[in-house]
């Protein structure tokens, strides 16, 4: 069981959270100007790294706020959790 530190609520069991996937994916400001390949890259392509991973989590059964997590995808060790700056996704 992962113990995840919500930046607002403190350490809670993983069952209170939902994982929102890779951090730092920003919706393109002007989708109409993108090629199909660029749009597909934004929509579907993921880093999916083996090792350090920056991701977004939501404290869905708690305060319901989003925050950032740095987690290792092999050891599952969480290096840190942090509040997101307004308008930022990483």
């Amino acid at each position: 069981m992962l113990l995840i530190k919500c930046p607002w609520c403190g350490e809670r069991a993983e069952t209170e959270f939902s994982c929102g996937g890779e951090a730092g994916i920003t919706r393109p400001a002007n989708p109409d100007s993108l090629t199909d390949a660029e749009w597909a890259d934004y929509l579907f392509m993921r880093k999916n790294p083996r090792g350090a991973h920056a991701e977004l989590w939501n404290h869905s059964l708690g305060c319901r706020r989003w925050f950032g997590v740095e987690r290792d995808t092999v050891t599952y060790r969480i290096a840190k959790t942090y509040k997101l700056s307004p308008g930022k996704t990483d």
Binding site: G21, M45, R46, K47, N48, P49, R50, T73
Partner: peptide, 18 residues
């Protein structure tokens, strides 16, 4: 499960998550 790891060796991106 390691498709993305191999893809990154050829600078490709895949739409999969492991």
């Amino acid at each position: 499960g390691h498709a993305s790891v191999l893809a990154s060796m050829a600078e490709l991106r895949l739409p999969v998550e492991s």
